[in-house]
């Protein structure tokens, strides 16, 4: 890394904020902006809705394609498209090409677009070579590997590496951290009981670590685990990993109110 000029200098990065962060937890979006700007990137936020995954995974290819086309158009002109989610990042980077596999022209466009898409922690570390962050967090944290980020994008070591550089934070490993939390998008509602049983195993594991904080890289999984932890009356703070990496933890944790 050359001295003086940050690794992302000169890069125009489109933030694909994801519909869940957009709707439920804007502070994660601002954490993403901070991390990207700290790395020297010029961040833009084109008007956007969703990556189309709910339609794609429900067998509705036509709507998934319409949403994908709209997303690709909105982010034209960006050097990279970065999402604070392995699931949505995986949709953009891995599934868009698959979605258009039967349309040669659109397929070329989707492949070129996909090549520019990244999950944010992977973008900072693998693409920009960021090795540490300037942040402080008092607590013992454990980390859950969300499925798409782990298995579609190979994200495992990267968040742990950056978390090591956070002052005051001690990271303890979660047993079966690579096992699904039971979220699965619409699965969590369509098969609520099954999803609830799977997340109950996860919260047992989380509690067994003794950590006071749970971190992960996908808001859907985090809402699922936070919702189960609070239903079980367990006092564990739940946050998106980049809130901690950005040092932006003033907002209450997921599922906790300002009144608390």
């Amino acid at each position: 890394m050359s001295q003086g000029s940050p690794p992302g200098a000169g890069l125009r990065v489109g933030l694909f904020v994801t519909c869940l962060v957009d709707l439920m937890r804007p502070s994660v979006g601002f954490a993403a902006v901070k991390l990207l700007e700290d790395a020297g990137c010029k961040v833009v936020v084109p008007a956007q809705t969703c990556c189309g995954q709910p339609a794609y995974n429900s067998g509705d290819r036509a709507d998934a394609k319409a949403i994908a086309r709209q997303t690709m158009r909105a982010f034209a002109g960006c050097d990279y498209i970065v999402a604070p989610s392995g699931s949505c990042g995986g949709m953009l980077a891995k599934h868009y090409p698959e979605l258009f596999a039967d349309e040669p022209d659109a397929s070329r466009e989707a492949v070129a677009f996909a090549a520019k898409c990244r999950e944010i922690v992977s973008f900072l570390t693998d693409t920009l070579g960021v090795e540490r962050v300037k942040a402080r967090y008092e607590g013992v944290a454990t980390y859950h590997d969300s499925c798409s980020g782990l298995r579609e994008l190979g994200i495992r070591a990267q968040p742990r590496k950056l978390l090591e550089s956070v002052d005051g934070l001690r990271l303890v490993e979660l047993e079966d951290s690579d096992v699904c939390c039971g979220f699965g998008g619409t699965f969590a509602v369509k098969y609520g009981e099954l999803s609830g049983a799977i997340v109950a195993k996860k919260t047992d594991r989380i509690a067994a670590t003794g950590a006071d904080t749970l971190l992960a890289g996908d808001l859907g999984c985090l809402m699922n685990m936070a919702g189960k932890l609070s239903r079980e009356g367990r006092q564990i703070r739940v946050r998106h990993v980049i809130e901690v990496l950005a040092g932006m933890t003033d907002d209450p944790p997921i599922g906790e109110g300002a009144a608390k």
Binding site: A47, V189, G192, G196, K228, R231, D251, G255
Partner: peptide
């Protein structure tokens, strides 16, 4: 299907895009 088995975290209020 969600809330029978776990709580639903509330949104912070307002979307990221609006903010």
């Amino acid at each position: 299907g969600w809330t029978r088995y776990r709580d639903l975290p509330a949104p912070q209020g307002g979307t990221f895009q609006a903010r």
